[in-house]
Amino acid sequence: MKVLLVDDESAMVDALERGLTAEGFVTEAAMNGIDGLWMAEENDFDVIILDIMLPGLSGYEVCRRLRAGGSTVPILMLTAKDGEFDEADALDLGADDFLSKPFSFVVLLARLRALLRRAPVDREPMLTAGSIRLDPASRRCWRGEDEVALTTREFSLAEFMIRRKGNVLSRNTIAEHVWNSELDIDSNVVEVYIGYLRRKLDDGRTRGVIETVRGIGYRLIETVEGKNDAASSI
C-alpha cells in the first residue's frame, strides 16, 4: 500500500520510512504543507500521515482543502500537542484518526491498518476474490481452506491486486504502489514477483487467479474451485 508522509522532522520521516518499508508499505514524503497538499492532489495514495505543525500550510489546512476537493483518502493526523481540542479540530476537518507525539511505531502501524480496513473503497476487514482470502490485520492469506505463506512483498502485491480485483493493472501502476517511485520500470521485478505469487496461489490447481493481459499488465480474477481453466503464464 502507498503512504504519503507529511512531516517536517527529518529524523522522524527517515525512521517511519524505514519501518513502513520493512512492513511492505511504499512511502513518499513531503517536508511542508504546500508540497504535501500538491502530492496528495496529484498522486494516488492509500493513506496519508499528516503532521499538524507544518511550514507553508498547517496540517489542518491541508486536511481541510483535501476534503473540500472531494478526497476520501484516509488521513491519520499527528500532533505534538496534548489536548482534546486539537483532536476535535482534526476530526471536525475530516481527519479519520489522530496520534499524539511521541508514539509507538507498533501503535501507528495498527492505526494505519485499521484505517485501510474501513476506508470506503474495497477496504473490507477480510479481503476476498472468489476462493482467495486476505486478512490485512494478521497478514495471512488463504486459497480455499489452504493457508498460503507469503513474504512481505508478495503479501503487499496480493493485497494491492485483490483490492482492485477485476481491473487490469499496468506494470507501472503495480511498481508505484508495491515498490517505490525509484523502481526501474524497465526491469523484470514486477514480472518475477507476479510469477512467485502466481505459483503460490495456484499451487498445482488448474484454475489460475492472475491473468496476463498481453502488452498491458495483469488482472486478479474471481475464482471458483473446480473450474478446469488453465492459468496464464508470464
Rank of each mutant, 00 (worst) to 15 (best):
A175I: 01
P102A: 08
C63Y: 10
M77L: 10
L157N: 02
V73Q: 07
E124A: 13
D92W: 05
D51W: 06
I132L: 15
P136A: 04
S156N: 03
E182S: 03
A95I: 12
D46G: 04
V62K: 08
D46L: 01
I48M: 06
G94Y: 14
D51R: 11
I75Q: 12
F155T: 13
R65Q: 14
S100L: 12
S181P: 00
S138I: 10
F105L: 14
A40M: 11
E124V: 04
E124L: 07
R111M: 14
T128S: 13
E41M: 11
D44H: 10
A88F: 11
L116P: 02
M161R: 00
E42T: 12
V107F: 11
G144F: 14
E147S: 15
E154N: 13
R111F: 14
N172S: 02
H177C: 10
N172R: 03
S131E: 12
I52D: 04
I49D: 07
F45R: 02
R140S: 13
D135T: 07
G69I: 01
T72A: 08
G59L: 09
P136L: 05
R113S: 08
P125E: 03
L50T: 09
L108G: 13
R164I: 09
S100P: 04
L108M: 15
G130V: 02
A110N: 15
A68H: 13
L116E: 00
R117M: 10
S71H: 13
R123W: 04
S156R: 00
E176F: 00
P125K: 10
R123I: 09
A129Q: 03
T151Q: 13
R113F: 05
E147Y: 15
A149P: 13
R113V: 14
G59H: 05
L93C: 09
